[in-house]
């Protein structure tokens, strides 16, 4: 019995030591970042000049969401209502493959195809980000619809509604909050993405979106980049916090497990 207790203590000690290492690796840089951001703020850092970048980011976000949301929603609703199971599986596989395309490939493609015709302005960036998030959002929407209990749809049909009417008036209200969480995950992806945009832009201009501006400032070795980094990271963390479910469950990932790219 004593031997077992000893082993249990040893196990707990090893777990605690490794956890402390993990916490140090995660928390120490964040603490340093907060300290640097505070000192940059006291010196009157980049905050006044950040307005242009915030505007550019919001403009990109608005344009992309405006284009992507109806397409993804329509596609997901169609996938829920119309196709057979076999077709649906094929479409799911295709979406999965599209969502797995790395940011570097998309960015390079945009650099070769879009930049010569549209330049490296907002139009190219919007199309690139639409291509980047559309499969992700469609896949997530479709997953939300597929998790709805079939009884809901059956009940709607039994009451005499058509498939589309049942989907829109019975199923949709039941999943609205989950759809909003998918949209927020998409917003996180758009605001945080930098690799694809940098590849599209090549040489980074001033007054671009926040993530690209952070890269530019870090390359210039500017102290006030810490403030920008903290603002960007903090905003995305708060967005994630706002979408957490209130009920007593551990958080789950919104994105499909097969999608490993994140920026």
């Amino acid at each position: 019995m004593e031997r077992r207790n000893g082993k249990n203590w040893l196990f707990t000690a090893i777990v605690l030591a490794l956890s402390a290492l993990g916490l140090f690796l995660g928390v120490w840089p964040v603490y340093r970042l907060c300290r640097d951001a505070w000192s940059a703020l006291r010196q009157g850092g980049a905050l006044p000049g950040m307005g242009l970048n915030v505007l550019a980011s919001l403009k990109l976000l608005g344009l992309v969401m405006l284009i992507v949301t109806p397409i993804a929603f329509g596609a997901a609703l169609w996938m829920y209502v119309v196709p057979s199971k076999r077709t649906l599986n094929r479409i799911r596989h295709a979406l999965n493959v599209l969502a797995m395309v790395p940011a570097v490939a998309l960015g390079l493609l945009a650099h070769i195809v879009l930049a010569p015709y549209l330049g490296d302005g907002m139009a190219s960036m919007t199309i690139l980000m639409c291509l980047f998030v559309l499969p992700f959002l469609t896949y997530n929407f479709e997953r939300v619809f597929s998790e709805v209990p079939p009884e809901l749809m059956d009940a709607g049909l039994l009451l005499g509604a058509g498939r589309t009417a049942a989907a829109c008036r019975v199923v949709l209200p039941a999943v609205t909050h989950k759809l909003i969480r998918c949209l927020v995950a998409c917003v996180e992806r758009i605001l945080g993405e930098a690799t694809a945009l940098l590849l599209l832009l090549g040489v980074v201009p001033e007054g671009s979106v926040l993530s690209v501006e952070l890269f530019r400032l870090s390359q210039l070795g500017r102290q006030d980049a810490a403030l920008l980094a903290l603002c960007l990271g903090g905003t995305l963390m708060l967005l994630r916090l706002a979408t957490l479910e209130r009920k007593n469950e551990l958080p789950k990932h919104q994105r499909p497990e097969e999608m490993w790219q994140r920026d």
Partner: peptide, 28 residues
């Protein structure tokens, strides 16, 4: 506590790569 720590981890996960890269360059 387990619930709160898991949620905190879930929120920290939202920090984008560009911010993490900056922290690496500055501190590591």
């Amino acid at each position: 506590i387990r619930l709160r720590v898991s949620r905190l981890g879930f929120c920290i996960e939202a920090i984008p790569a560009v911010v993490l890269g900056y922290m690496t360059m500055r501190y590591i």
